[in-house]
Design a binder for these strands. Structure first.
Lengths: 145, 145
DNA sequence: AATATTCCTAGCACAAAACTATGAATATAG
DNA sequence: CTATATTCATAGTTTTGTGCTAGGAATATT
């Protein structure tokens, strides 16, 4: 029941972009330095986020990435699902309809797992990138005072 | 974010025991037949459940397992945690206190993950083995009628 | 004594996760 | 217009975990 590093890193990358959201492009090298994630691994993680239109990119010198929307318009669930796939606790609930399992009809645990899937998704969709930003900013204030 | 087969099978094994809870001992071989799980793999899965006192066992001919308590006294969370370990979405939340992560203090996502851990555990602890039994039994009735 | 079970431990095959590596495409800067 | 800095695409590698298989000891019943 663990979220992979891709999911966790994706959240940190998006949060980093949100905190440096001046309108200018932020090169991955900068984020890599701040977040202790290798450049090459980050490229792989941000790639699906770019394809999903969550971040905008420009190549070449002084290129980089920036958010496509306001931080309040991304839920953590949005971001996690893009890099992790469906947030479902079983394979039979991952592929839209329960194609795989021959026991699906009579399965006494399926509705339990559906319930779990639903509370997970409801929760991760209740927190936005902006919420994480505020968390971060208030923690910094605590530190300064 | 997947539950392993151990967790899923553990639930099915416990449910099978609950549905055959006549007071007699049920040998794993019987459960293996009904549940399409190999005997040897089931042995491994039920072992921690026996050690946790969730099932009682007797060796030898006409030995087997039975539930230690009434089905209503097990939550799905209880069972899953015994075989899967802590139901936490990150390693840093799995080992009691966040020992591992040097970033824990300033981590802006930790409370998000704590929230996720909490909703997961709250949900899995809200469903009991008896609930699964009722699900199963009413499904069977549907089928018969 | 034979048999049927749980219990214990080790190993193995496969898949997935977590990176690393190489280099092409492309935009800017000087 | 060349050097440089970036994204983009793809493939390879290493490590870890999952999902089982195997063999046999211990123990209770028949």
């Amino acid at each position: 029941m663990k979220v992979s590093t891709k999911g966790r890193y994706a959240l940190r990358i998006m949060l980093d972009l949100a905190l440096h959201n001046s309108g200018e492009l932020v090169p991955l090298k900068d984020i890599a330095g701040r977040q202790d994630i290798t450049l090459k691994y980050m490229e792989q993680i941000i790639s699906p986020l770019a394809k999903a239109g969550y971040v905008l990119s420009l190549r070449g010198s002084s290129g980089g990435y920036r958010l496509a929307r306001h931080p309040s318009e991304y839920t953590c669930g949005d971001i996690l699902r893009v890099v992790e796939g469906p947030l479902a606790p079983t394979v039979c609930l991952s592929s839209g309809d329960f194609v795989d399992c021959p026991r699906a009809d009579e399965c006494p645990t399926i509705s339990f797992w559906e319930g779990l899937r639903d509370v997970i998704n409801k929760y991760v969709d209740s927190v936005t990138l902006e919420d994480l930003m505020n968390e971060q900013l208030s923690a910094q204030n605590d530190y300064v005072i």
